[in-house]
Design a protein around this nucleic acid. Structure first.
Lengths: 290, 290
DNA sequence: TATGCCTGATTGTCGGACACTAGAACAAAG
DNA sequence: CTTTGTTCTAGTGTCCGACAATCAGGCATA
């Protein structure tokens, strides 16, 4: 494998500034400000550790295209000699890259460059939103534009097979009546699937974590609004029908009404400015890529 | 500090399964499939390393709320004894959490729990979109709904000060005519600022990386469309005016026209299905939090 | 050809070590 | 009493060396 990596090795070997830790505390010429304590330009003075530099250097080479997805990284020991640091230090850097999603490990022996996976970003964003305690209102306001957009584009681009698969999810959803957890799961899947049909990765990335959180509210709304479930189901049917007819306007309209209706339910349940999700509920879903 | 951490320590000490590495390769009862090679349920068989378990355990406790933002983590050595692993192993886990944004280091001596920072997520998402080579079309389709939404809500919620600040950015933008890099920067800031005025963190999270990438196209459009720059500026003026009047509909309308116009420019420049950004361009901006 | 075995390279984890520094406690000076 | 300087200690970044487990690949065997 060393033949294949010759080039990589050459590229990677921008050796780390020797003995960074020594230079850590060195605060770069901090100008004295005569006007008193206030107004001092508070520069962050960020220290840079060796393991960070390792991660940054490799990351930069990935972004610059010198390392492409699929390329295999040299061994840890080799990286160590290349950068002039110990294997332990290299490892810490690799862990960062790993959880950044820029490298992954197809086999425990190989470490290769990859592009961040969508589901990983979704988890990340969802976690962040939960931790920053976003409200249903915030989620809803955005969903109010993303889902109709997804439906509209999906009507133009979805394949017949995809629409069929969506129909199947809808059927499963009907069959799951009464089982709340399953209902929510299938409801989310329904929307995710429409999102995928739009063939827009940006939209997919943006809407997924949001709808994931928002539609959990289902469980909190249903008990308060008897007809809520039925209306939601009907909306789904209408969306599917519109998709079948390739009627973008109608698909968009029904999606909008669907989300509007969701909001009415949320209002009845008094959820408007409630925190959408105590992060605890997400704790089970941590899926760290390996 | 050990007094304050007594509770944390108790909580944290769910000790890691002893000797995980030994159980690594153990492939869980793989059922033999008599029908031939095809149809075998290819289970991922994910091994779990000690450093991952450390990260996951601490992460879970953060999500569960047992560790709250601002809490200080015990020292590495202490964590090591709590989990029953070496300090090196703990460190690798901490590096993951660090780049996940769940913990950070206000001072090189303290490691405390925090909620993921928005700008970090933005960087992450932007990098991912660049690496997956999204097209201008994908970005534009989503921007076409996010920016009008941001403008609409901003018209309802922005403070007078914020509108004033926006006006200032606009003035700077006018003054920067001809300087492309600066123009793009200020244009992005203009939109970001409107996004912030909407006081919707979900919207902010969703739209920021997208607009960041999309509006870079400015540089590629301007040379092809002489009047493009002027029209964009005018649209900005009109948006500000609408915000001043608290006219949500008009703000939304102008934002939409603004983005539509951007698309016309993109068409003239032939960018529709071009890759929005070679990731290289992002490589300079890596800002790893410390 | 397909199977089993052996070997080298790589990885996960360990334990110990050292220099350096932030933070606190303390002493001296205005 | 506040401000400045000193000392000490715990904790961090980095290094070193080591070991068991495992994967990849070559080789021998059936």
């Amino acid at each position: 494998m060393s033949d294949d990596n010759e080039a990589l090795i050459d590229d990677l070997s921008r050796s780390i500034q020797p003995r960074l830790s020594d230079a850590c505390g060195a605060l770069g010429g901090l100008a004295f400000w005569p006007g008193g304590g206030v107004g001092l330009t508070s520069k962050p003075i960020q220290v840079s550790y060796a393991y960070q530099q390792i991660a940054e250097e490799i990351e930069a080479q990935i972004l610059r295209g010198e390392l492409k997805p699929g390329d295999q990284l040299p061994g840890e020991a080799e990286l160590g000699t290349l950068f002039g640091v110990t294997r332990s230090t290299v490892r810490e850097g690799l862990r960062q890259l790993e959880s950044d999603g820029l490298v992954h490990r197809p086999s425990p022996r190989r470490m290769e460059v990859t592009v961040p996976q969508a589901d990983q970003l979704t988890t990340r964003a969802g976690r962040a939103m939960a931790l920053m305690k976003v409200t249903f209102r915030e989620l809803w306001e955005v969903t109010m534009v993303t889902e109709p957009l997804a439906a509209r584009i999906a009507a133009q681009r979805a394949t017949a097979d995809e629409i069929e698969a969506l129909q199947q999810v809808h059927a499963d959803l009907l069959a799951a009546e009464g089982k709340m957890a399953r209902t929510i799961e299938l409801d989310q899947q329904f929307h995710t699937q429409i999102g995928d049909m739009a063939r827009n990765r940006v939209l997919g990335l943006a809407r997924e974590p949001i709808s994931l959180l928002l539609f959990r509210g289902f469980a909190q709304i249903a008990p308060f609004a008897p007809k809520f479930y039925k209306r939601q189901i009907e909306a789904h049917s209408n969306i599917i029908a519109a998709l079948r007819d390739r009627d973008a306007d109608r698909a968009e309209k029904w999606a909008r009404m669907h989300i509007e209706d969701f909001w009415r339910g949320a209002q009845i349940a008094g959820l408007e400015d409630e925190i959408a999700l105590n992060a605890r509920a997400l704790s089970g879903q941590t899926e760290r890529q390996t």
